[in-house]
C-alpha cells in the first residue's frame, strides 16, 4: 500500500517507499552517486530553484563541523526557465515522483513559478516550499496561500526545525498538504581559509533538532502527513522518525557522503515498511 503525502489534494502524491531523496541530494535528478538510482527512493526533491538565475555565494562554501558540516551555496541555481527547459524530459522518465523545491528571492516569486508550473507541466508531482528561518506567521501564511491559489499541485511546506511547532498550524491553514520537519538551525563557522560561513547545520548533528521539531508538531495532531528531514544517517534514525509521527523521511547529506549507506537506509526502511503494511 503506497504512502499518500497529499491525502487532501485531488492529485494526490503516493510514494511506494517512505525514503525520499531530500532537496538537492541528487541535484535536479541528474546527479546520481554510484550505486544509487531512482528506484531506491519513494520520491526525489530537487535542488532549490528561484525565478531568476542566481550565481550563489562565492567560494568557499563548505566548513566541516564536529559530526557534520555547513554548506552555504547562497541558493546557487540556473533559474526557473532553464531548469524546466533542461530537466522536464528527465523528470518524466525518471520513474519516481519528482518534487520541485521553489525558493523565493522576492514576495510573489514562488507564486509566479507555481503558476508557470501549471502551464508548463514539466512532469513534477509536487512542490516543496521552504519557509525561511526568520518569517513571521503572517508572512508564512501569505506566501503559502499565494502558491496554493496558483497551483493544484501537492504542496509540501518545509519548516525551520526549531520553529516548526510555532509555524505548523498556520502553514496547514494556508494550504500545505504536508509538512517537512525541517530545516536545521543556521550556524556560523569558519571555512578552512578562515572565511566565516553561515548556513544550516547538516549531517548527523542535525538529527536532534529534527526529532524535537517532529515530536512537537506530531503532538499538535494537525491531520497532515509529516516528513522528517535532517540528520538521518542510519535505518534506525529513519525508523525512529517514522515511529514518532513521520510518514516519510528525507535523506541528503548521507547521499553525498556515503551512497552505499544511503542505499542501505532506503532498502532497510522500505523492507520494514513493506513488512508492516497490510499487504506486506
Amino acid at each position: 500500500m503506497p504512502i499518500e503525502l497529499a491525502p487532501r489534494n485531488k492529485r494526490g502524491l503516493p510514494l511506494r517507499s517512505p525514503v525520499m531523496a531530500g532537496s538537492g541530494a541528487v541535484g535536479y535528478g541528474d546527479c546520481w552517486p554510484p550505486g544509487l538510482d531512482p528506484r531506491a527512493f519513494g520520491a526525489i526533491v530537487t535542488a532549490g530553484v528561484t525565478m531568476r538565475p542566481r550565481s550563489g555565494r562565492e567560494p568557499p562554501r563548505l566548513a566541516e563541523l564536529p559530526l557534520g558540516f555547513l554548506l552555504a551555496t547562497g541558493d546557487h541555481n540556473p533559474g526557473y526557465r532553464r531548469v524546466v527547459a533542461q530537466y522536464a524530459e528527465l523528470w518524466r522518465r525518471l520513474g519516481v515522483p519528482v518534487i520541485l523545491s521553489l525558493l523565493g528571492a522576492e514576495p510573489g516569486d514562488r507564486a509566479w513559478m507555481a503558476t508557470r508550473l501549471e502551464e508548463d507541466d514539466p512532469g513534477i508531482a509536487g512542490i516543496e516550499l521552504p519557509v525561511p528561518e526568520d518569517v513571521n506567521l503572517g508572512e508564512a501564511s501569505a506566501f503559502i496561500a499565494a502558491v496554493r491559489r496558483a497551483t493544484t499541485l501537492p504542496l509540501l511546506v518545509r519548516l525551520p526545525a526549531t520553529r516548526a511547532a510555532h509555524l505548523a498550524e498556520t502553514c496547514v491553514v494556508a494550504g500545505a498538504d504536508a509538512l517537512v520537519i525541517g530545516t536545521p538551525p543556521p550556524v556560523v563557522y569558519p571555512a578552512p581559509d578562515g572565511t566565516p560561513l553561515e548556513g544550516p547545520l547538516a549531517g548527523p548533528t542535525a538529527l536532534p533538532f529534527t526529532l524535537r521539531g517532529l515530536r512537537a508538531v506530531a503532538a499538535l495532531h494537525l491531520d497532515v502527513p509529516l516528513i522528517a528531514s535532517g540528520g538521518i544517517q542510519k535505518a534506525e534514525d529513519a525508523l525512529l522518525c517514522l515511529r514518532w509521527g513521520a510518514v516519510a523521511v528525507q535523506i541528503r547529506s548521507l547521499v553525498w557522503t556515503d551512497p552505499a549507506a544511503a542505499m542501505h537506509v532506503a532498502e532497510s526502511v522500505h523492507a520494514a515498511f513493506a513488512a508492516d503494511s497490510p499487504e506486506g
Binding site: G24, V26, G27, P33, A47, S55, G56
Partner: peptide
C-alpha cells in the same frame, strides 16, 4: 578544490572559471 559529493549535486566545489561559476 575541496569536494563534498563529487557528483555535482552539492555545489560545494564551485569556482569562478571558464566564464562562470
Amino acid at each position: 578544490a575541496t569536494f563534498l559529493c563529487g557528483t555535482g549535486a552539492c555545489l560545494a566545489c564551485v569556482a569562478d572559471v571558464a566564464g562562470g561559476r
